[in-house]
Write a protein that binds this DNA or RNA. Structure first.
Length: 579
RNA sequence: UGCCUCGUGGUGUAAUUGGCAACACGUCUGACUCUGGAUCAGAAGAGUCCAGGUUCGAACCCUGGCGAGGCAACCA
C-alpha cells in the first residue's frame, strides 16, 4: 500500500463528517490520479479577511492536513491599483493566528509574472491570442449579452508577428493605458460570457507593491489564477461558486499551454445572519465610519472577531460545524456564538464584575472588617485553582439583580427577600433608599454570618451546604467590594444589523438596517481587584454576565474590556417572552 | 428568457450510493446547581420543491415543470 492509499484508508475510517469535496479527493486518490493532496488559499490583498475566508482557510489547510498533504498561501496580487502591503500583512497575521502554517510556501502570483508573460507568448504563437486595439467601450459593446452572441473584434485576425510585436511593445511601455489589451481567441458566440475572447493582459502604469516599476502590463485574474495553481502543482483548486463559470476558461488555458491541470472544485460561500460579508460592503462600513475600522469588534472580519475576544479554536470549530456544500446558505450567528461559548467555558478564568452598580450597605457587618474569600477560578477545570476575593461592609451588585416589585419567577434580590452573594453570605434586603426623583440609589441589607461559603461546599457536590446547611436560597448573585473595586470601561456589542439578511431587501440599502444600538459603552464598571493587572488580549468570564476580553486600548490605569458574548441567559428569555 | 449550479425540519450538514431520513445549532420540558452558566435526561419539528415514470422498494435514477443563485469590470 502506498502513501496515498494509506491516507485514503485513514480518511475513510475517520469519524469526521464527509462532504462532496472529500469524496472527490477520495476518488482521485483511489484512481491514482493524485498521489499527494496539494491545496492553496489564494486571497487578493485588497481587504481584510472575514469569517467567510476563515471557512475557506480551514477547508484548504484542513484538507491538506487530513490527507497529509500541503497547503500554500498565495496572494493573487494581479491588480496593483487596489492592493497594498497593509492587506498582505493583515492576511498573513490572520491566517497564522487561525493556527495554520505554510512553511516556506508563501507565494505571490507576481512571482510568476515572467512565466505568465512567456505563457502569453506561447498562446500568441499558437494563434490563440491577439492584441486588441479597440477601446474598452468597443470591447464592452461587442461582447453581447448572456442571450445574444458577441461580435468579433476587427483586430482579431492580426498576424502572429504583429501580435508578438505589439504585445512586446505593450510590455515595454510604448502605449498608454487603455489603448491595447491582449485577448484570448476563443469564441465570441459562446453561451459562456467568459469564453468570449476574455482579456488576458491590460496596460496599467501603476507600480506594484512587490514588483515595483518592472511591469506596466498586468495579467488579469483569469490568466494568472489557473496558471499559478498549475505552476505550484496544486491538485485541488478549491474556490467559491462564482468561479464555476470560469472553469471552462481555465481548462482551455491549461490545455493550450499543455501544463499541469489542477482540479477545480467550487463550494458555496459562507453567509451569516445579522451581518454582511462582501468585501465591498465591509470596506464601505469602514470608510463611511459606521464602524471604527476593519477590526471593530462588530465586524465579521478575523481581526474584528479577534479583538472581540474570539479564539482561533472557536472559529475552527465553527468552520467545521457549518459544513461545506454547493447550495446557498445563511448560517445562524447563534452557531458562531455557541462555538465561542463552548471553547471559552472550558478555558476562561472566572471573575466577578459589576457593570451597572447598585451600592449595598450590610448594616450588621463590622465596619472595618475585610475578609478574603476563596473563589473558584474555573469550575470546568480544577487545575486553574482558586483565588481570594475581598469582601467588606459595602458592596456593589448589579442593578438588574434587584427589583422593588419582582415578578413571579424573579430569583434575585427584592425587599424582604434573601439572595446569596457568590462565595460569600446570604443577605436580606431590609431597606430601599431613593433620591428625590425616586431612583433607587442604595440598599440596606443584613447578612447572615452563619452562611459563609466554604470552598468544599462549592466544589464538591457530596458536601453540599455550608455551616448552616439546609439554608438554601433560590438565587446567587455576583458582587464587588466597594473599597476594593477597580474601575473599568466595558464595551458591549450587539449585532450590527437589525434583520437577519440585510442584503436581501430589494428596495432598501443594507445600511438602512444598521442597528443603532450595536455598541454601548459603560464607563464605570466595577471589577474585583484581581483584574487590575489584566493585559490586552486576555479573556475572562465575568460570572453570570458573559465572556470579556481586554481590548488593545486598555492601559493599567484605564482598563478597557470588550464583551465577546453573553452567557446563555434563560432569565432574559423569560423576560422577553413576558413582554 | 441563453448558459452554469443548486432545491432535505426554523438554520446548516448527512443518509453505507436504490432499502421507509440522521447529526448539530436553535426551540420547548424536566433534573441538578452557590454562575437563571455548565452538565444530564427528554420532547416537538421534515416525509426530502411539485407532477409523472422506472423499480418489490426512490431524497438518491429518468422526464417535465416550478423556484433560487450565478454569469455581460481593461476587479478578484
Amino acid at each position: 500500500m502506498d502513501d496515498s492509499k494509506e491516507e485514503l484508508a485513514k480518511n475513510e475510517s475517520s469519524t469526521a463528517q464527509s462532504n462532496f469535496i472529500k469524496e472527490i479527493i477520495n476518488e482521485d486518490l483511489k484512481s491514482g490520479k493524485v498521489k499527494k493532496v496539494h491545496t492553496r488559499f489564494p486571497p487578493e490583498p485588497n481587504g481584510y479577511l472575514h469569517i467567510g475566508h476563515a471557512k475557506s482557510i480551514c477547508l484548504n489547510f484542513g484538507l491538506a492536513k487530513e490527507y497529509n498533504g500541503l497547503c500554500n498561501l498565495r496572494f493573487d496580487d494581479t491588480n496593483p491599483a487596489k492592493e497594498s502591503v497593509e492587506y498582505v500583512d493583515s492576511i498573513i497575521e490572520d491566517v497564522k493566528w487561525l493556527g495554520f502554517d505554510w512553511d516556506d510556501r508563501l507565494f505571490y502570483a507576481s512571482d510568476y509574472f515572467d512565466q505568465l508573460y512567456e505563457y502569453a507568448i506561447k498562446l500568441i504563437k499558437k494563434g490563440k491570442a491577439y492584441v486588441d486595439s479597440s477601446t474598452s467601450e468597443q470591447i464592452k459593446d461587442s461582447r453581447g449579452t448572456p442571450t445574444e452572441p458577441g461580435k468579433e473584434s476587427p483586430f482579431r485576425n492580426r498576424s502572429v508577428e504583429e501580435n508578438l510585436d505589439l504585445f512586446e511593445r505593450m510590455k515595454n511601455g510604448e502605449f498608454e493605458e487603455g489603448t491595447h489589451v491582449l485577448r484570448a481567441k476563443i469564441d465570441m458566440s459562446s453561451p459562456n460570457m467568459w469564453m468570449r475572447d476574455p482579456i488576458l493582459y491590460r496596460i496599467r502604469k501603476v507600480p506594484h507593491h512587490r514588483t515595483g516599476d518592472k511591469w506596466c502590463i498586468y495579467p488579469m485574474y483569469d490568466w494568472a489564477h489557473g496558471q499559478s495553481d498549475s505552476i505550484e502543482g496544486i491538485t485541488h483548486s478549491i474556490c467559491t461558486l462564482e468561479f464555476e463559470i470560469h472553469r471552462p476558461l481555465y481548462d482551455w488555458c491549461l490545455d493550450q499551454l499543455e501544463i499541469h491541470h489542477p482540479r477545480q472544485i467550487e463550494f458555496a460561500r459562507l453567509n451569516l445572519t445579522y451581518t454582511v460579508m462582501s468585501k465591498r460592503k465591509l470596506l464601505e462600513l469602514v470608510e463611511e465610519k459606521y464602524v471604527t475600522g476593519w477590526d471593530d469588534p462588530r465586524m465579521p472580519t478575523i481581526s474584528g472577531l479577534r479583538r472581540r475576544g474570539f479564539t482561533p479554536e472557536a472559529i475552527r470549530d465553527f468552520s467545521e460545524r457549518v459544513g461545506v456544500a454547493k447550495r446557498d446558505n445563511i448560517i445562524d450567528v447563534a452557531l458562531l456564538e455557541y462555538s465561542v461559548r463552548d471553547d471559552l467555558n472550558k478555558r476562561a478564568q472566572r471573575v466577578m464584575a459589576v457593570l451597572k452598580p447598585l451600592k449595598i450597605v450590610l448594616t450588621n457587618y463590622p465596619d472595618n472588617q475585610v475578609e478574603e474569600l476563596d473563589s473558584v477560578n474555573n469550575p470546568e477545570d480544577e487545575s486553574m485553582g482558586t483565588r481570594k476575593v475581598p469582601f467588606s461592609k459595602e458592596i456593589f451588585i448589579e442593578q438588574d439583580d434587584f427589583m422593588e416589585n419582582p415578578p413571579k419567577k424573579f430569583f434575585r434580590l427584592s425587599p424582604g427577600n434573601e439572595v446569596r452573594l457568590r462565595y460569600a453570605y446570604i443577605i436580606k434586603c431590609e431597606e430601599v433608599i431613593k433620591d428625590e426623583q425616586g431612583n433607587i440609589i442604595e440598599l440596606k441589607c443584613s447578612y447572615d454570618p452563619g452562611t459563609k461559603s466554604h470552598l468544599r461546599s462549592i466544589t464538591s457536590a457530596t458536601e453540599r451546604g455550608s455551616a448552616q446547611s439546609g439554608r438554601k436560597v433560590k438565587g446567587t448573585i455576583h458582587w464587588v467590594s466597594v473599597k476594593h473595586a477597580v474601575n473599568a470601561e466595558v464595551r458591549l456589542y450587539d449585532r450590527l444589523f437589525t434583520i437577519e439578511d440585510p442584503e436581501s431587501d430589494e428596495q432598501k440599502n443594507y445600511k438602512e438596517f444598521i442597528n443603532p444600538n450595536s455598541f454601548e459603552i459603560i464607563n464605570s464598571a466595577k471589577l474585583e481587584p484581581y483584574l487590575q493587572n489584566a493585559k490586552p488580549g486576555e479573556r475572562f468570564q465575568f460570572e453570570r454576565l458573559g465572556y470579556f476580553c481586554v481590548d488593545k486600548e486598555s492601559e493599567k490605569d484605564k482598563l478597557v474590556f470588550n464583551r465577546t458574548v453573553t452567557l446563555k441567559d434563560t432569565w432574559a428569555k423569560i423576560e422577553k417572552r413576558n413582554q
